[in-house]
Nucleic acid binder design. Structure first.
Lengths: 183, 183
DNA sequence: GTCTATAGAACGATAGAC
DNA sequence: GTCTATCGTTCTATAGAC
C-alpha cells in the first residue's frame, strides 16, 4: 500500500471515531506508519486529507445504506430505522456535523454527499406510502431521528434511547397502513 | 460582578457556540476580562468550570422549555416541535454530545439533566394521547427529531431541513386525532 | 482574590537531507 | 517519494508578586 493510501485509511478510522478537530496530523502519521513529511508531500494540509478521507467514507457508507433492503418501499424505511447501531459511539460521519469546521466545504461537502444519498432513497421509499405528508420531509424526519438518537443515547449514556426513537417512528409510520407490502 | 461569575458567564456563551474542546481557558479568560491566574483560583481546571457553566446553561434551557406551552398535552408537543430555532447554529447544549469529553461526568451529567427534564415533560404530554406507542419512546423520538434536525441542517447547510423533520413528526402525531384539545 | 509571567506539551506546518 | 528535525503558535496549567 502506498503512503498516500495509508494516510487516507488511517484518517478514515480516526475521523470516524474522534471527529475532525480532535484528529491531529501527528495522530494520522503515527497511526499510518509514514513519516512526518510524507503527509505534506501528498496533501496540502489537514483539511485536504480530511476531504479525501471523508469522500471515501461517504461512499463506503452510502454503499452500506444501499444494502439495507432489497426493495424500495417500507422495506427500506424499516431496514434503515431498525438496523443495529453502536449508539454510544455515534454516527461515523454525522458526528462531525456540530464542529466549527463544517464552515469549510472540504469538510462539509463530502459529508453532505452521504446525507443526500440517503435522502434521495428514503424520499423514493416514502413516496410509495400514502401518508399525506411530503415524502422529502418524512425522509428528513427518518434521518434526523437516527442522528438525534445518537445524540440522546450519548447524553443519557443509554443505547436504548436510540432504539426507542427509531422504533417509535417505525410504529408511527406503519400505522398508516404500509401500502400492502408489509409481510 | 465577581470574577467567578464573569468566568461562568463567558464559559456559557463560548460552550454554547463552540463546544467544549474548542473552548480554551485562554478564550474564557480573555472573553471574561479576568486575568490568567484567577481562572485557576476559582476552578480546578477547564472541566470544573465547564461543569458549573453547563449546570447553569441546563437550568436556563429547562426554564425556556417550560415556557413553551401553558398546558401539558398536544400543546406542549406542538410547542416544542414548532418553536423557531437557529438551525445552522446547532443546539446550544446538545452540540457537545458528540465530543469525546462526554466520557467525563462533569461534562455529560449537567447536559443529561436538561434532556431528562424534557423527556419527563414530553412523556407526560404523550401519555395524554392515545397512540398505542410507549410515551417514553415518543418523547425520545421528539427530542431526537430536534437534535437530528440540527445535524441535518448543518450538513446540508439548509435550515429548512430541521423544519421539515419537526413538522413531519408534528403531522404524524396529529393524525392520531390529538385527543380533543387541538383548537 | 487578582494579576503578570511562564512552564511543558501538543498543535499544524515546513526545511532539507537522502 | 520518504524520511528526521524543527519552526512558531497555542494548549492546559502553575508560580509567585501584590
Amino acid at each position: 500500500m502506498t503512503a498516500r493510501d495509508a494516510l487516507v485509511d488511517a484518517a478514515k478510522t480516526l475521523l470516524s471515531t474522534q471527529g475532525y478537530e480532535a484528529t491531529s496530523p501527528r495522530d494520522v502519521q503515527a497511526s499510518s506508519g509514514v513519516g512526518q513529511g510524507s503527509f505534506y508531500h501528498h496533501f496540502a494540509g489537514k483539511a485536504d486529507l480530511a476531504f479525501a478521507a471523508l469522500l471515501s467514507l461517504a461512499d463506503e457508507m452510502s454503499d452500506a445504506f444501499d444494502s439495507l433492503a432489497d426493495g424500495d418501499g417500507i422495506d427500506l424505511i424499516g431496514g434503515y430505522l431498525n438496523v443495529p447501531r453502536d449508539a454510544l459511539s455515534g454516527c461515523r460521519i454525522g458526528r462531525i456535523a456540530m464542529e466549527s469546521s463544517m464552515a469549510d466545504d472540504r469538510i462539509r461537502v463530502p459529508i453532505a454527499g452521504y446525507f443526500s444519498h440517503m435522502r434521495l432513497r428514503l424520499t423514493g421509499a416514502f413516496s410509495l406510502l400514502d401518508t399525506g405528508i411530503a415524502p422529502e420531509a418524512l425522509a428528513d424526519l427518518a434521518i434526523a431521528t437516527v442522528q438525534g438518537g445518537y445524540v440522546l443515547a450519548r447524553v443519557t449514556a443509554d443505547p436504548q434511547a436510540l432504539r426507542n426513537a427509531t422504533s417509535a417512528l417505525d410504529s408511527l409510520i406503519r400505522s398508516f397502513g404500509a401500502t400492502g407490502d408489509d409481510r
